[in-house]
Design a binder for these strands. Structure first.
Lengths: 164, 164
DNA sequence: TATTGTTATACTCTATAACTATA
DNA sequence: TATAGTTATAGAGTATAACAATA
């Protein structure tokens, strides 16, 4: 509490060159801030990372989803999904069940414990969202979400995609 | 070119649960899109990643910067900066010079080749920015930048910080 | 004693390729 | 032959702790 003013970091003198003119720079900083806030609030309490929470959301919202489809939707490699599914299964949150139609496929579903854990996580994520997005008004949050969506949807070669 | 319409992915049927209501989800997707676009345009031509380009920008804008300060400003560990500086030095883009005032410190400066390479990179980054931010109007880009800054600046415990 | 750069180490994420079993 | 899952492996990125030289 003492030498607060004296520390006024000389960072202020530093220039960041053209970085402030690059959208990706601000996107990266904002995303890092979001992950750190998520870590302090959700991960610290329930031990789930943003990526794993996203996987759980998609599995919960689409019961019986195959690993294959999960990999497509989350746009990660099959070998990466394999490790993710191993972690979630190892923690008892989801179950792998061989498909009846195609015995190569694993159908993914949440266990009872997984559903209970997910409910706790969702409450924490809502709280995280409220606090993290706190600096912005509801209108501004909607605007930001819309601008971000147009940005990453605009990168697709096929216009009019239907990703959320 | 043939079965375009037939492929209309069943992704459309899938639900993403509450993810679309989470700001960090959209931030992550937008940032991944930005990195991929950067990779296709800038990295493919000049072999520089977004992170290394950021380092070069800060070094170029603050000649003689110590590794120590660079680590502070970029908010990464000293040991991580060490590897970054090794890479940039190994490629002949920057030079390490022991400081006169403090012989522990390395002053970082761009070499002549580094300045030339940076000029080429900057032209590519401007083109990348124009194309990547293309879906948004100039006003919308300014709005987005402002909202992102308020978001990640809002996470600091000290209000009124002076980071770009 | 504290700081700067360095080194070793490890852990996560991501990406690639090869293997198996099914289709 | 093609696909789903698995396995091994390797490369970035990040973090910690310990060390030598210097302050």
């Amino acid at each position: 509490m003492t030498a607060r003013l004296a520390v006024i970091r000389d960072e202020a003198k530093l220039s960041f060159g053209m970085l402030p003119q690059v959208l990706g720079y601000h996107l990266r900083r904002a995303q890092i801030a979001a992950f750190k806030h998520f870590a302090r609030t959700v991960t610290a309490a329930e031990g789930i990372t943003p990526g794993l929470f996203g996987m759980l959301q998609v599995i919960a919202a689409n019961p019986g989803l195959a690993q294959n489809r999960l990999a497509e939707v989350m746009e990660v490699d099959r070998s990466a999904i394999f490790k993710v599914v191993n972690q979630l299964e190892g923690r008892g949150l989801i179950a792998r069940t061989p498909s009846d139609h195609d015995r190569r496929s694993n159908c993914l579903t949440l266990t009872e414990g997984g559903l209970a854990a997910l409910a706790r996580m969702e409450a924490l994520v809502v709280a995280h969202e409220t606090e993290f997005a706190g600096p912005l008004s509801p209108d501004e949050r909607a605007t930001l979400t819309s601008l971000l969506q147009r940005l990453y949807r605009g990168q697709n070669d096929l216009p009019g995609g239907s990703r959320p």
